[in-house]
Amino acid sequence: MTLKTISLALVAGFALSVLSGCATMGTKIDTFSKVYEQRPMTILVMPPMNESTSPEAKEFLECTLMPPLAEMGYYVIPVGIANEILKGEGVYDSEIIDDSALPKLAEYFGADAVLWTTIREWDKTYVVLAGNVRVSLDYKLQSTRTGEILWNYDGELKVDTSGDSGGAGGLAGLFVKAISAAISTATTDYVPIARKINVKVLNTMPAGQYHALYDKDQKQQVRIK
C-alpha cells in the first residue's frame, strides 16, 4: 500500500466520521439486549427533570412523550392521570424518588418500566436565529422488576425546524401560527418541536408489542451516542 492510498483511506475515514456527525452506531440487540429479554409492555412516564434554564421545557417535553412512545408499540400510562395520582402521593417532582419507589410504581400503575427524562439544555434562541433547536437530553427506561436500565439515550440533539412546511412544526408554520389569533401564546408552537425531539429519540428504542417490527428490529442500527 502506497502512502497515497493510506492517506486517501484516512481522508475517506475522516469524511465518513464527519458525515455521521461523530455518532456511535450500534444494533438495537447489542445495545439494548435487556429490552428483548424483559419485554416490557407497560411504561410509566415520570415528570421530566429540568436542569436547563428554560422552565417551560418540562411541560413541552412531558406533553409530547406519550404519542411517540405509544407509536413505538408500548402501552403508556396516561401522563395526565399519572401526574395527578403521583401528586396525590406527594410526588411533585421526579427528583425526590429513588429506586425504593419502583415496587410501588409497579403496584399502583402496573408499570413494567419507568421512563425518566432529564433536560440538560434547551436552547430556545436557535429557533429564531438558525431555524433549529439545540437540546441536550437524557432518557432512561428502568425496569420496575430488576431496577436495571433497559434502554437509554443521552446526548445532544439538533432538530431542524426550517425545512418542513406547516403542521409538522416548520418555521413557516411557526410564523403562521404566531400570527393566527386562535393560538393564545407563541410558546405553544414548541409543542411540535418537542414532539419531533421525542420521536427522534424514542425511535432508537426496540419496538414494543403493538409495533409491526416487534421482535424484528434487533439488527436495526441506531445512534447510541
Binding site: E56, E59, F60, E62, C63, T64, M66, P67, A70, E71, V79, G80, S184, T187, T188, V191, R195, Y210, H211, A212
Partner: peptide, 18 residues
C-alpha cells in the same frame, strides 16, 4: 407512518397543563 389517530392531543394537554 403512525398507527394511531392523535388529533391535537399534545397541544390541548399542554394548554391545560400550562
Amino acid at each position: 407512518n403512525s398507527m394511531y389517530y392523535w388529533g391535537d392531543y399534545s397541544n390541548t394537554l399542554y394548554n391545560w397543563r400550562k
